[in-house]
Design a binder for these strands. Structure first.
Length: 253
DNA sequence: AACCATGACGAAGTCGTGGA
DNA sequence: TCCACGACTTCGTCATGGTT
């Protein structure tokens, strides 16, 4: 048993040697693990394979959703967004009470659990937009809508320094997780000046053009901060403070 | 010999980092 | 500038290497 006696204690793997901490102190040993062949065939790994299958499904579903709203994401995401999304997607899958172990999936799960997901972990929508709004998904007409009530930018929007304007953004998307296809429609408000005068209500309506869809529908809502220089709008801080959240989910039939 | 604690592995995907 | 690799997400199983 190799023991680490130096000043710098390591944890993790370098080359073929694994460094770790045990109750006896810091140790080092040869890298171990289960080989691929065994993982795929050994009956003892059945449970592990089932977990892997569900995890793979969560990964794929996350990618499908991510790809679907890619145009809206537009820098309103942090570097760990996918990780968090996969984590949430695993909860969706684990909520499937119909399928057998290893076969649980997002369609039989609770996609509603994704509601409230923030695509930018550094700027949560609920801590950025305090103007009140309602969200509606009308499956019959295929219209996904956000209604922001009258508000005061100054006191109801938390904007980063340098903001002169902002705009609300929204998108409605129908996702077919089985075929990994989607149907996205996006909309945004005009540029709104960041000051203390009252603003008229804002309506962001997304008509996906499909009536009575049977697939899951998602409504995302967010805000983009802008700086106006000589009449042109520039994205502020590369979008670091932009917020985007999955405000409403309609699971489908 | 039996037992215990612990980390690696695998699945899919994306982003950040470092080397070439 | 591009590419390869590691980190990170979940979690059950087992190799590893120690102790009793």
């Amino acid at each position: 048993m190799a023991r680490q006696s130096g000043i710098i204690k390591l944890k993790g793997t370098i080359g073929d040697i694994t460094f770790y901490k045990s109750k006896d102190g810091y140790l080092a040993r040869q890298k171990g693990g289960v080989d691929k062949e065994r993982f795929h065939n050994d009956p003892k790994f059945k449970r592990t394979r089932e977990n892997a299958a569900e995890f793979a499904r969560a990964g794929k579903a996350s990618k499908a959703l991510c790809t679907a709203i890619r145009p809206v994401l537009n820098k309103t995401q942090d570097s760990r967004m996918i990780s968090r999304l996969v984590k949430s997607m695993m909860q969706v899958i684990k909520a499937d009470q119909v399928s057998d172990r290893g076969l649980r999936n997002v369609l039989d799960g609770e996609l509603v659990l994704l509601q409230g997901f923030d695509f930018n972990g550094n700027a949560r929508l609920s801590a950025t937009v305090y103007a009140s709004y309602t969200s509606v998904i009308d499956r019959a007409t295929g219209i996904l809508e956000i209604n922001v009530t009258s508000f005061f930018p100054d006191s109801q929007i938390v904007a980063p320094r340098g903001t002169t304007h902002f705009r609300f953004i929204s998108a409605g998307v129908e996702v077919d997780f089985e075929n990994e296809t989607f149907n996205l429609v996006q909309s945004s408000s005009a540029e709104i000046s960041f000051d203390n005068s009252v603003r008229e209500p804002v309506v962001l309506s997304n008509d996906i053009g499909v009536e009575e869809s049977t697939k899951p529908l998602f409504l995302v809502f967010g805000i983009e901060f802008l700086q106006q220089v000589n009449g042109t709008f520039y994205a502020l801080n590369n979008g670091a403070y932009n917020a985007l959240s999955l405000v409403l989910v309609d699971t489908g039939v």
